[in-house]
Each structure stands twice: as structure tokens, then as C-alpha cells.
Computed example of a mutant assay.
Amino acid sequence: MAVTNAVDLSKLYTRNFELNDETELVFHQSEIGDVGCVVWDAALVLCKYLETRDFDEGNAWHGKTVIDLGSGTGAVGLVAAALGALTVVTDLPEFVPLMDHNVNYNKSVIAAGSCSAQPLVWGDSSQTQNLKEKFFPQGLDFVTIADCVYYEESITSLVETIVELCSDKTTVLCCYEERDIGNKSEMQRKFFEMIGKRFDVSEVPLAAQDPHFRSPDIHIMKFTPKLCVVR
């Protein structure tokens, strides 16, 4: 079955993003499409967190392996790649053209690392395993997720995919914005309840985040796999 693009690549607008060393990335967003067509505030907060003291001002990313889930524009993975990480940005197949466009546009900026745009449907175990074998045969260092708890029907699949990707050396960085509209609060509660069964969860304090890219309504959480999981 042919994939219909979720974005119109002829109707793009840009958002410039500056690293601490004044290197500039350009994120192309689409005027038409689903929620993944734009860069959300939580993604920007997570992007800047990658350059804080927790990661040696960004120097700790050199050579690290990273997969970004629900990437949309690919922003978080592109920043990690610009800091020297070996990254794969993933989303539904219809978002791959937009991610590819941004990877190619920023190619010179991400030369310190690498970035590949790949389709990944959450809950598709064979797809997840294929990505691990192809890009991360030695295991993943980081999984990054920004504002991905949108649809109730996808929560279980998202958790399953996170679990499949992680080994005991993997850290998950999950950034999300509090939202009171609809059932978003209940969805976030359900997501963290499921995650808490498999991971130890801690919150990054505001003081550890970038002073200009942080908000009390936006939370960065760290998940580390539990050493012993009661099934």
C-alpha cells in the first residue's frame, strides 16, 4: 500500500535553533498536517537540556547511540547528532519525508555525528528489532521522547516499544508539557503508571535545565530500567 504523506513539503516554514556554540540548525515545519508537523515547546526544552552540565555542556554526546521516538520534524535527534551522537529519528512512515528533509538540510551541521530517518510503528516488534540490529547492535545509550502521549490508543504500544529498545545501560529522556484539555492528564497518568512497572522514574529539576528553555509546565523525566522486574 502506498504511503500518503502527512505533510505537504511544498508548504514549509522554518524555525531556527541555536546551540550554545552559536551553531544554527533549521527545523522545517509544515503548514498542513498532523501534530508531528511542528516543533513543540517540550522538544525545544529537551533539545537545550542536552547541552547542560548533566551532559558536560553537550560534550558527553560524542559517540553515544540515540533513538528518538515520535520525532515528527526530527528536532531532538538532529540536535543530538549535531553534538556528536549517532542518532536515528523515527515516526510513522508518512512523517519520514519531513524528517529526511530536515536531516538533509542540516547535513553540514550534524557532521560531528550522524542522523538517519526511519519509519517505526509503535508496538511493531519486528520493526523495532530490525532497527536495533541495523543501527544499534551493541545496544542503545539513550531513547528520547518529546510530547508523544497524545492518543490513548497508542500508550500501550509506546511503552512496549520503549521496553523493547532498552537494555540495562539505556537511559530514557522523556519531556512533556502538562495539558488539562480533554483526557490528557489521565493519559499521562496511565503512561507513567505503566512505565513505573518497568523503569525507575525521576524528574530533572528545573535548576538543572537550560535557564532560558524551561518552564514549570514542562517536565523532563529520566527512566532507567529496573534491575529486577516482578512479572
Rank of each mutant, 00 (worst) to 15 (best):
M1Y: 13
A2Q: 12
V3P: 07
N5V: 07
A6N: 13
L9F: 09
K11G: 04
K11Q: 15
Y13F: 15
Y13Q: 05
V26H: 09
V35L: 12
C37F: 06
W40Q: 05
W40C: 01
D56V: 09
A60Y: 12
I67E: 00
G70P: 08
T73W: 11
A80E: 02
A81C: 08
A82W: 06
L83Y: 01
L86Y: 11
D91F: 07
N102R: 07
V103H: 05
S108Y: 09
C115F: 01
S116T: 15
P119S: 12
V121K: 13
D124G: 01
E133V: 05
F135M: 08
F136V: 03
E152R: 10
I155G: 00
I155R: 06
L158M: 10
V159S: 00
T171D: 04
C174N: 15
Y176C: 08
I181P: 04
E186T: 12
E186S: 13
Q188G: 01
R189G: 12
F191G: 04
G196Q: 08
R198H: 15
D200H: 14
P205Q: 10
P205G: 10
L206C: 05
Q209P: 09
Q209C: 14
D210Q: 04
P211F: 12
P211S: 13
F213A: 12
F213I: 05
S215N: 15
I220D: 03
P225D: 00
K226F: 00
K226M: 11
C228K: 13
V230R: 13
